[in-house]
Amino acid sequence: MSEAKDGCVTPAKGPIMPEATAAPTGVSTLPTQEVTRMLARVGKPAPDFEATAFTGKGFAPVRLSDYKGKWIVVCFYPGDFTFV
């Protein structure tokens, strides 16, 4: 955990694609379409990702696959300070 060092420009990896669909050697970024295609399907492996997080104590990167082996609930919501 790099909580103490976290500044304001530490990017997280975001979606992490499996090796099989990664960009060919020599190409550093995935095509945009590859990133925006919906991949989450029931009965299929969860798309992995890394995000920066507020943990209640400080800031830390969280990777979904760190929790492999447990039941996980991921809740997306439209925004902090909204009404519902």
Partner: peptide, 16 residues
């Protein structure tokens, strides 16, 4: 943990 999805890249992959 409350995660940050800057630019919605993760949400795109999850279709939200």
């Amino acid at each position: 943990p409350m995660l940050s999805d800057a630019g919605g890249k993760i949400g795109s992959v999850y279709g939200v």
